[in-house]
Design a protein around this nucleic acid. Structure first.
Lengths: 150, 150
DNA sequence: CTAATATAGTACGATGTCGTACTAATCAAG
DNA sequence: CTTGATTAGTACGACATCGTACTATATTAG
């Protein structure tokens, strides 16, 4: 069953299919844990700014989030309207802007994290945490390779 | 570093994050391999009908694809306009419909598969195929658990 | 048989994301 | 310095997806 060529290709296909379904299901759980109007991608941006530090340009955030700068412009507009971030011109680059978290943004993240953890805790059992921990290393290798060769 | 509670939660979070990025990157590769106007989700529907057999109702396909029936109505409309499927009333259920693949749909799938395989072949090396094969079992366990507990 | 409930599918509007095109600012070449 | 090329961000339209509401048919309760 492991003939080279077509068979291997189908295995790759199946792998990406499983990954896609897991992503969809986990995103759905996350979405239900967030207040109305806050999309998982919005939460992801705030989370990234907390973990990696704010004061970054929209384009750098877009690259980290794997979305286009168009999408980032739109998402940042939403987050700014909600008062979770502030966007100001970059004093060192007339073209650029800098994104900073507000206190409301940090507070929102804390509350959301608690909420999400609780939901995940309801669904994910120790057995599955173990699987995740075991797979992480390989996933990171794959992700980096795909990221560098797109 | 492996204290129970918050730390474990963050590991779960990180896992889903990696999965999300891999999914996004692989979907992007797939999208580039398909002709204009054919979305990865459309391809996925055709692929599912070939593998699992056609003559299924939209709602069953929607469940299998992990999308709402709204989305399926829309996607099927696109596929029907392109001549890849035919949608007809279910003779046994006045509410239902049955989706069947056309010859054009099957031919499209064959061509698309070849195209996608070639793209994946350019990016994915034996080392990474090995990783995928190794992870598949665990991923299936996770996917099934999430699917049953959503 | 009739009424209440459930299910399949559609209609409509909202939103996230992307591609193309555009502006403004920076950088590099001469 | 000037010109051409690159980069940051925005504007606009297209599209996939979702949530809510609706219609039509099936199923179940009485």
């Amino acid at each position: 069953m492991s003939k080279p060529g077509e068979a291997d290709g189908l295995e790759v296909f199946g792998f990406f299919n499983e990954v896609g379904i897991i992503n969809q299901l986990s995103t759905a759980i996350l979405a239900k844990s967030l207040p109305d109007g806050v999309h998982p991608s919005h939460f992801s941006i705030i989370n990234h700014l907390v973990r990696m530090g704010d004061g970054k340009s929209p384009i750098r955030i877009a690259a980290a989030m794997q979305v286009t700068k168009n999408t980032m412009t739109h998402s940042l507009k939403v987050l700014e309207e909600r008062g979770f971030i502030s966007v100001e011109p970059d004093p060192d680059d007339g073209r650029g802007k800098l994104v900073r978290l507000t206190e409301a943004g940090r507070a929102f993240r804390e509350a959301a994290i608690r909420n999400v953890m609780a939901r995940f805790g309801d669904v994910i059992e120790p057995e599955h945490r173990a699987i995740m921990a075991r797979l992480m290393g390989d996933l990171v290798v794959l992700r980096k390779h795909l990221d560098e060769n797109r």
